[in-house]
């Protein structure tokens, strides 16, 4: 039962991240490689706030505000630099945040990470965590479904297709792309907080390149503007490493094998699905 609940929580948590990734990468077509930075920054904000004696609920709000600020910063950068520079800066931000966290060991506990993160009083055991995660994931999916039906959702798809046309229709694409990045950051922050409350430990090595490959794999699996592809993406990245359990690999190698598999899987996926990235030309 414990294994089932853990896997279910992980799947629905991944689904919340998947909603954010789907919006920014698959719908709006923004190659936002700073996603693990947002995730890590908000998780550390929650953990540090809790360690400072702030209640889990208020710490969660602090994590959301942190994600909002980091998202705003990335949104500003996106409107200033070229897409490839934005991608490189997103990647570099992961390394910079990692170095910053390991340098500020007085607050972050350095490479040891932060343990003993307290759950809110209304979700003290694993079944409660699983129920809350499922409820939040369904709510996030519902929000995305609503967003997709609104002009905001149509703008997201139009932004990926033809930014210039969108501008000519009077849409402020700079403000719009900033909003998409902020929405993605908030979804990631919610997922990060729930993840922390489940495992009650923050590993300092979390939120680096393997986390990025994990998120990108999910994003590429859910390229189509349909909710079911988000579920598919989250399902594949959750259950793919579970196959490794059937093989007798040494536990010290498991992490590397998982990273290797994800990376190869991402290369194959892009190779197979890359035509979906090309903007389709509509003929009227």
């Amino acid at each position: 039962m414990g294994y089932f609940l853990t896997i279910a929580s992980f799947f629905f948590n991944t689904l919340i991240q998947g909603v954010g990734v789907h919006m920014v990468l698959s719908l709006a077509g923004i190659i936002f490689l700073g996603m693990p930075t947002v995730l890590k920054a908000s998780m550390y904000a929650l953990a540090i706030a809790e360690k400072a004696g702030i209640s889990p609920e208020i710490s969660f709000i602090i994590a959301l505000v942190t994600a909002l600020v980091v998202g705003l910063l990335f949104g500003f950068l996106f409107t200033r630099v070229s897409p490839d520079s934005f991608a490189v800066l997103g990647l570099a931000s992961m390394l910079a945040l990692d170095a910053l966290i390991k340098s500020l060991d007085k607050f972050t506990n350095g490479v040891l990470g932060i343990s003993g993160i307290v759950r809110p009083s209304w979700m003290t055991d694993l079944p409660a965590v699983a129920i809350v995660t499922v409820a939040v994931a369904l709510l996030c999916l519902f929000i995305e479904l609503i967003l997709l039906k609104t002009p905001f959702g149509r703008r997201m798809r139009a932004f990926k297709e033809d930014e210039i046309t969108l501008q000519s229709l009077g849409i402020n694409t700079k403000k719009f792309s900033r909003n998409v990045i902020i929405f993605c950051s908030l979804f990631l922050s919610v997922a990060g907080s729930l993840f922390l409350w489940r495992i009650q430990f923050l590993d300092a090595n979390f939120g680096t390149v393997p986390a990025l490959v994990f998120l990108l794999t999910m994003g590429i699996l859910s390229l189509k503007p349909k909710i079911r592809y988000v579920v598919l993406g989250a399902g594949v990245v959750t259950f793919l490493p579970e196959i490794l359990r059937f093989f007798q690999f040494p536990s010290s190698q498991m992490g590397y094998i998982r990273d290797f598999l994800y990376a190869i899987f991402l290369i194959v996926l892009i190779h197979q699905l890359h035509t979906h990235f090309i903007t389709s030309r509509r003929t009227i």
Partner: peptide, 29 residues
């Protein structure tokens, strides 16, 4: 090469990242 010739530079970036991770994971293994 396919992405380079189709000018899909951001896809090439993603493949390059994944290839880098695969090399690093293989070295660690």
């Amino acid at each position: 090469r396919n992405y380079i010739h189709k000018s899909q530079v951001l896809l090439a970036l993603l493949v390059s990242i994944a290839f880098g991770v695969a090399i690093e994971a293989a070295l660690a293994m």
